[in-house]
Design a protein around this nucleic acid. Structure first.
Lengths: 208, 208
DNA sequence: AGCCGTATCAGCCAAATGGCTGAGAGACCA
DNA sequence: TGGTCTCTCAGCCATTTGGCTGATACGGCT
């Protein structure tokens, strides 16, 4: 049987080298190309039609990982896309799965876990690092905590330090409506002040 | 002449593999050991006395990078320590240099930059990625923007979403004093609200 | 047709926050 | 000794924020 072809996408050269070295130990897996950006990833997918794309979500400039996933899916070549990233951000996980990722691994995953994920991905299995899976599970278990699109939009602006008045102007709604949304957001996040909301939002949104 | 001995410290296996692969291409550089944590790094330093320690600041559990640097320096074996990390956080840079790091490289640095930093480090030269250097420069140029220790302490608690009252209780000072500190912090950060202060603080403090 | 979720807005009131001025104590440095 | 920095505290007042209750409108689901 022929080896599984893999494309590595990460803006850090060392990470690509490391993955290449790791995957090189597996006879049934072959890295056929690397890309340092979303744009480059698209080119390489067209060029090599790899079976699996292993991709970091955080890419320096230009297209971000989510957008890249979406575009690759748009090529209709049915690659399995594995997200391989440093942070287990709630939002990123949901967005990545939404965009069409087959699995979500953290960078501190054990080599065996990575191999298994790649092998599983070509068979259509979806793989998650345990901590990632538990987060998703929690979100499903607790639908009350899911923000509506409008609330998420507001929260995102909130983390830029805007006042209620500014939020209203930015979103073309009254201050009263802003306050209503905020109250709902606080309840869902389990906080009581705007400061705490910003803190948890920024921390959840992908950093740490 | 004998090769420069290097210890790699990073909690991500792929990063260690990548660095090892990269450094392996240089005949005058030899990776003698790896460590996945600060604790392990100390053991390996004792064991191998490497000339250079290349270390990530962000380490999962246990001792963080800064603490590890401090401890290694405490061994009095005069290793040159190079910080090699993903984020160019103001606070981290200052603390790392303060703890005794010889250089500060970002993970997207070019291989030549990394090699040069290692070679420079053993000769006592200090090396910085250009973006890192420019940040440090800016801090030196603009001393008005440096927070006092107390202010920094307060800001750090602020990013946890505490109210003025809670801040006062936590620091054993009156609410009035809290407000004074906050006013100074806002002025130095160039913001006008607590929300904006939290936003800029968290973003500056190490993520992005 | 009725229900639920989402988004919009209003008014009221208590609490928190921010801007201002002023001031005392201790540390450090020239 | 005098100047500067840091940390501490006070009072006053305008603005902002948060909690509450209630209301309208639209869309989708049953």
């Amino acid at each position: 049987m022929s080896a599984i072809t893999v494309l590595l996408v990460d803006d850090h050269l060392v990470v690509r080298s490391g993955l290449r070295a790791l995957l090189g130990t597996q006879p049934d897996i072959t890295v056929v190309a690397e890309a340092a950006s979303g744009e480059e990833a698209l080119v390489q997918v067209r060029e090599h039609s790899p079976a699996v794309v292993v991709m970091d979500l955080a890419m320096g400039a230009g297209m971000d990982g989510i957008e890249a996933i979406r575009r690759i899916r748009g090529l209709n070549q049915r690659q399995a896309i594995l997200v391989f990233t440093t942070y287990d951000s709630d939002a990123d996980i949901v967005r990545a799965v939404d965009a069409g990722a087959m699995g979500y691994l953290l960078k501190d995953a054990a080599p065996e876990e990575i191999f298994a994920a790649i092998r599983g991905a070509v068979q259509g299995k979806s793989v998650m690092s345990p901590p990632v899976a538990s987060r998703l599970f929690q979100q499903l278990r607790n639908p009350d905590e899911i923000l509506t699109p409008r609330e998420a939009e507001l929260l995102s602006l909130l983390t830029e330090g805007l006042s209620n008045r500014e939020l209203g102007q930015r979103l073309f709604i009254s201050e009263a409506t802003v306050k209503t949304h905020l109250a709902h957001i606080y309840a869902k996040l389990g906080v009581e002040t705007r400061a705490a909301a910003i803190a948890t939002a920024i921390r959840r949104e992908g950093m740490r």
